Simulated scan of single mutants.
Amino acid sequence: MHVDEYIDIEGLKQLFSKDRLYKEVLKDDLNEEMLFPSFIKELKLTRVYTTEEVSKMLNKKDSNIRYYINELNEYIKPMKPNRNYRYDYIIIYRIYLIILFTSSAGRKICDIKRILNDVHLDPRVQEIEVLKEKVDIVEQHVNQLNQIKKLHNERDSNIKNIKNKVHKNQCQVIEIDLKLDELNNQYFKTMVNIFETERRLLHLDNELFQGIQRLELQNRLYAIESAIHEKNKSLFDKISSVFNSGTEASSSTAESNLLVVQKEINNEKELLIKLEKEREMILMEREKVADLKIKVLKGD
């Protein structure tokens, strides 16, 4: 509920500035709280109240409220859209002035009638006063409406400013999202380059490993072949010396030497076969390692 829906006390003072009963009450030199108690300040501009609600505000019985209306109907001017009375904030304050005035000892309703119906006043003047009062009421409502309009304009302006800020923040969020997307793309490209570099390094490492293995194997095979060649040469030399010897003793010795050399050759052949098998196993293991690295590089 907005503050602008409640009455303005300063406006109420101006509205009743020419009210005769209000002027009489002011002569009692009452304080602000007595003239405008809290329930008056909480009255709303556009709302109308029932007799029961008004009686609770004024702490009076319903019968008292009806009595005031019957005795001072022309002053109070209650609304009666149907068989029940209705009261706006102006009517309620008039009733409150009646109660305030009669609360002093010796004052009665007849005194209020005398004040309101001064015989010395020209009837035309009274009519003008009534019209002025109505004009003041209209002006009061116009002022209140202008205040409401001003507050609504301020609210609309605030809403517009908030929307502009929200739009600006949304644009900033979009820019940040675009920058994040760009950074993510750069990160992805960098990761792809790193992966490609690692793949090349693995490939080079595999080639280096295979080259070292081939070199070691070739060196071992070369050493074995050289040893076999030396053994064959030694055997050939021994066989030649046996056939070149002319004695039986020499033949027997040559035959014995030949058996020894043949045995050595057989041993060397067995060693060669072993080395060939070892070579095949090394080649098979190298192929397995190469296949594994290829799978790693492909991401399988």
Results as ranks from 00 to 15, higher is better:
D4L: 02
Y6I: 00
K18H: 08
R20A: 14
R20L: 15
Y22N: 10
D29F: 05
E33K: 15
E33M: 08
L35C: 12
K44C: 06
T46V: 00
K56F: 06
K60R: 14
D62V: 02
S63M: 04
I69E: 06
Y75K: 01
K80P: 08
Y85M: 02
R86H: 10
Y87N: 04
Y89L: 08
Y93T: 03
Y96V: 01
Y96L: 11
A105S: 09
I109N: 02
D118K: 01
V119R: 01
V119M: 00
L121W: 00
D122W: 02
V125R: 08
V130M: 14
E139P: 00
L145E: 02
K149M: 14
N158R: 03
V166C: 03
V166F: 13
C171R: 15
I176C: 11
Y187N: 12
Y187G: 01
F188N: 14
N193A: 13
E196V: 03
E196L: 12
R199G: 04
R199D: 08
R199T: 09
R200V: 08
L201N: 10
L201W: 02
G211P: 00
A227P: 03
I228D: 11
N232C: 14
D237S: 14
K238G: 02
K238Q: 05
F243Q: 01
N244L: 13
T247E: 06
S256G: 11
V260G: 05
E264L: 05
E268R: 05
K269T: 12
L272C: 09
K274T: 07
K274I: 04
E287S: 07
V289N: 08
D291Q: 04
K295S: 06
